[in-house]
Design a binder for these strands. Sequence first.
DNA 1: TATACTTGGTTATATTAAGTAACTCAAGTC
DNA 2: GACTTGAGTTACTTAATATAACCAAGTATA
Lengths: 127, 127
Amino acid sequence: MVVMIGSSEEFSERFCPRYQRAVEIVGRRWSGAILRAMLRGASRFGEIQEAIPDLSNRMLSERLRELEAEGIVERIVMPERPVRVEYHLTEKGRSLNEVVEALSRWSQDWIEVEVAVQDGKRSAAAG
Amino acid sequence: MVVMIGSSEEFSERFCPRYQRAVEIVGRRWSGAILRAMLRGASRFGEIQEAIPDLSNRMLSERLRELEAEGIVERIVMPERPVRVEYHLTEKGRSLNEVVEALSRWSQDWIEVEVAVQDGKRSAAAG
DNA sequence: TATACTTGGTTATATTAAGTAACTCAAGTC
DNA sequence: GACTTGAGTTACTTAATATAACCAAGTATA
C-alpha cells in the first residue's frame, strides 16, 4: 500500500500530530487542574495541592515533573529551611491560558454541578 | 463545620467544580482527538477511527458512549444493511470548538513534532 | 455450500496509569 | 526526644487502557 502524504486530504485534515501531542500532555489526568491553579497564582507544591481537592502529592509530583520535562513548568529550589520550592509557568505554559480560559467558559455555559451535600462536608453549587 | 461559599477567596478562585468536571470529560484519553475529528466532519464510527491512528474500536466505542451520556454526542442508527450509525455533535458538543481551536493554536505555536520515519511507514513533520 | 467481507461493535486478558498509605529528610520547635 | 513543616518517595492496590480475538446480519464471491 502506498503511503499518502499530502494526497489524502480527508486524513491529513482530521489528524494533526501536534494537536495530538498537545492533547496528550495537557489532557493527562490532573494536568488541566494544575495548570489552572498555577495560572491563577499558585506556585508552591503545597499551594497547588491545597487548591485541588483529591489530588495526591504523588500525582502532583509526577505531573509537575512531566510538565517540567515538556518545558511548560520551571522548578526553582530556594535553599531555605525548611526547603522551599517554587514552580513557575514558562512562556509556553502561560500561553496555555487561552486553552484553560476557553474550557473555563465552556464549563460555565454547559456544566451543571451536582449539589452533593453530605453531612457537614462541602456543598458546591449556585454559581 | 461551617461550609464556606464565597468566603474563602483563595480556595474558590483556584478550584472550580465546573471546570474540574469539564477537564475530566474532555481531557479523558482520546476524547480531545475524537472531538477534533467530529468537529471536522467525521460522523461515522469507522470514519472517526480512520482519522485517529492508534485509537482502538474498543476505546472509541467507550468514549462515544461517555460523550453521549454527557450530552455532547448524539447517536443515530440508520436501519440500512449493513447497519449505518452516525454520531453527531450536539450544540453542547459543537461549542467545544473554541476549546479545540485554542488547543490547536497552542500546539501549532509550541509543539514540535518528532519526525519518526520507520521503514516505509508514516512520516509526520514539516508543517 | 462454504468463504470472505462489511459496519459497528463486544469479550477476555494483559499492561500501564492512578489511587492509597506509609515513610523519608533536614532543620527547627516544645 | 517527640513533633512539626515542606516537599516529596516507596510500596502496594485498584482502575483505566491496550491488544487481540470474536460476534451478528446481510452481501458478495468461489
